[in-house]
């Protein structure tokens, strides 16, 4: 295949991938976020403790996560037809991708929220805050960096899952690499597509890390689970944080602070 023949193919496949990943991410977040929150709230000692609901949701999520995606996508063919009126094409693939990614993201949300210090929940309860306040003013904002790191991971997983969408004629870059590149032994096309995928994944990871880093730097928290940060993070925060307490504690809390308290 020449470059000029390749271009329209890449263009269509790229747009298909974008379409599938975008919409499946949107639905996976819309469904996974509440599920993750629910898993935490209904757990033992949670605000809405309900073991039955917790175990049921947990089991469903586990089943969803343990099914190989390719099986899920085939099994969901009738369901896709029912929901979007077709069982082939990118739109049908979105149904399967969203359903496949929802439990994945839900677990990441759950983990992120469990990392939030229980003392903060207690503090808000002591102010008279209810469950709503706890979720929207404490759990989600405090877990935001971890949630974004989880979102990044989910998007990247969806990009790789979307290669399997070819099974239902979903198209996309991954499918192009497999069908036109690998199976027809067009090495150049395969290489270009794979490089393109690597570039897309790198960009997504980079953006995710930058956002996490910006929030983390402001709030002084760096979540686990962000590869780029893990590699380069430790040196920076320690260097940044170390001199600060020494420089600030002394003047801030010495005699000046007590003097202020005395007059204030």
């Amino acid at each position: 295949m020449t470059w000029s023949e390749m271009w329209p193919e890449l263009n269509t496949a790229g747009l298909d991938t974008l379409y599938m990943v975008w919409w499946s991410t949107v639905y996976a977040v819309l469904a996974g976020l509440p599920l993750g929150v629910l898993l935490v709230l209904t757990d033992r000692g949670g605000q809405l403790q309900n073991i039955v609901v917790n175990k049921t949701v947990g089991a469903v999520v586990n089943i969803g996560r343990s099914l190989p995606f390719i099986i899920l996508i085939v099994a969901l063919i009738p369901f896709s037809r029912f929901v979007v009126g077709t069982s082939i094409g990118p739109t049908a693939a979105v149904v399967a991708l969203a359903i496949g990614a929802t439990p994945f993201f839900a677990r990441l949300v759950e983990t992120a929220i469990r990392e939030v210090d229980g003392g903060l929940v207690e503090a808000v309860q002591s102010m008279g805050g209810g469950t709503w306040t706890i979720v929207f003013k404490v759990l989600l904002p405090q877990a935001l960096p971890s949630l974004i790191a989880g979102l990044t991971t989910t998007i990247i997983t969806l990009i790789s899952y979307s290669a399997m969408a070819g099974a239902v004629g979903g198209g996309g870059l991954g499918n192009l690499a497999i069908v036109n590149g690998y199976q027809r032994s067009d090495d150049r096309l395969m290489l270009v597509t794979v490089v393109l995928l690597v570039v897309v994944v790198t960009i997504v990871q980079f953006i995710g890390d930058v956002v996490v880093r910006i929030i983390g730097r402001r709030t002084g928290t760096v979540p686990a689970g962000s590869s780029w940060l893990r590699r380069r993070g430790p040196r920076k925060p320690i260097a940044e944080l170390a001199p600060r307490p020494a420089a600030e504690v002394a003047p801030g809390d010495g005699p000046t602070a007590s003097a202020r308290a005395g007059t204030g």
Partner: peptide, 22 residues
């Protein structure tokens, strides 16, 4: 709701401050 309203009239401070870093 009644208990929450009563709690809002009782201040509490904690050993580990429990401030929202966000």
């Amino acid at each position: 709701a009644a208990l929450r309203r009563a709690r809002s009239r009782i201040g509490m401070v904690f050993q580990h401050f429990n401030l929202l870093s966000s």
